[in-house]
Simulated assay, not measured.
Amino acid sequence: MSRPTPRLARLAAWIAIPAALVASGIVVSQASYSAYSATTVNPTNNWTAGSVALTDDDNNTALFTASNLKPGSTGTNCIAVSSTGSLPSAVKLYGTGAATTNGLSTYITVTVTQGTGGGFGSCSGFTATAGAANTFTGTLANFASTYTNYSNGFGTWAPTGATQSAPSESRTYQVTYTLSSTAPNTTQGGTASLGLTWEAQNS
């Protein structure tokens, strides 16, 4: 086989160079190509749960610590309960931890009334809320067995939810007790106790 002449070899080299440049240009063109684009963004989304919150003004002190009672003994006290939660709710009152000896709780009559004004230690300025559903009158034993949890609790208070301009809403509960004048001799030395719980649930 004959070898190409020097002139033909040089011509072939010159022809190869442009072909290589063209191929390289295609690669560069493809690598630098960029499509148009556009985006739109919704700012960061946030979720915050509302709250249901109750406080009272008793300073962790019982409404009554009544001792040495006799037939006809009576007493009255008030307690203010405040709602500071952001959600609308319904508030109910019920008894907890009922206990008695000598049947004393069946001879103590209690009246519980929902209203406004007054507070713990003084019912001065208290005004009852109208309506039979806002007053209970019966024995201590009856209150304890009737109002045992939120679902059957006493009261009609429905806070609308705290706002910046109205950060809290309050109701006062007036409680009066009387040991029946007909309490039998068997109740001597007897005891009765009952805790009061206010619970709010959002509506």
Results as ranks from 00 to 15, higher is better:
residue 130 A to G: 13
residue 114 Q to W: 07
residue 142 N to L: 13
residue 127 T to H: 08
residue 116 T to M: 04
residue 127 T to C: 04
residue 127 T to A: 15
residue 135 T to N: 03
residue 119 G to F: 00
residue 140 L to E: 13
residue 152 N to K: 08
residue 152 N to F: 01
residue 156 T to I: 12
residue 151 S to Q: 15
residue 127 T to L: 13
residue 154 F to K: 05
residue 126 F to C: 02
residue 124 S to W: 06
residue 133 A to V: 05
residue 129 T to V: 14
residue 134 N to D: 06
residue 134 N to E: 07
residue 151 S to W: 11
residue 143 F to M: 12
residue 157 W to H: 10
residue 123 C to E: 02
residue 130 A to V: 11
residue 131 G to S: 10
residue 147 Y to Q: 03
residue 141 A to W: 01
residue 154 F to Y: 13
residue 133 A to E: 14
residue 138 G to E: 09
residue 130 A to Y: 08
residue 115 G to N: 04
residue 133 A to H: 02
residue 146 T to D: 10
residue 127 T to K: 13
residue 148 T to N: 08
residue 148 T to W: 10
residue 132 A to M: 05
residue 154 F to N: 00
residue 120 F to I: 05
residue 138 G to Y: 00
residue 126 F to S: 01
residue 125 G to C: 05
residue 153 G to T: 09
residue 119 G to D: 09
residue 121 G to A: 01
residue 132 A to K: 06
residue 131 G to V: 10
residue 144 A to E: 06
residue 127 T to V: 14
residue 114 Q to N: 12
residue 137 T to F: 05
residue 136 F to N: 06
residue 147 Y to C: 06
residue 140 L to M: 15
residue 139 T to H: 07
residue 145 S to Q: 14
residue 126 F to E: 06
residue 154 F to L: 14
residue 121 G to P: 00
residue 113 T to V: 14
residue 140 L to Q: 13
residue 119 G to R: 04
residue 128 A to E: 00
residue 120 F to N: 06
residue 156 T to Q: 15
residue 125 G to P: 01
residue 137 T to M: 00
residue 147 Y to L: 09
residue 157 W to M: 00
residue 156 T to C: 09
residue 133 A to G: 09
residue 125 G to L: 04
residue 139 T to V: 10
residue 141 A to P: 03
residue 125 G to V: 07
residue 146 T to I: 06
residue 120 F to S: 00
residue 117 G to P: 07
residue 123 C to H: 10
residue 129 T to I: 09
residue 157 W to C: 08
residue 117 G to K: 10
residue 118 G to E: 02
residue 113 T to L: 01
residue 153 G to L: 12
residue 142 N to H: 01
residue 153 G to N: 08
residue 140 L to G: 03
residue 131 G to P: 04
residue 124 S to L: 04
residue 127 T to D: 11
residue 151 S to G: 14
residue 151 S to T: 15
residue 116 T to N: 15
residue 142 N to A: 13
residue 118 G to F: 02
residue 123 C to P: 12
residue 138 G to H: 08
residue 147 Y to N: 10
residue 156 T to G: 04
residue 127 T to I: 10
residue 140 L to V: 02
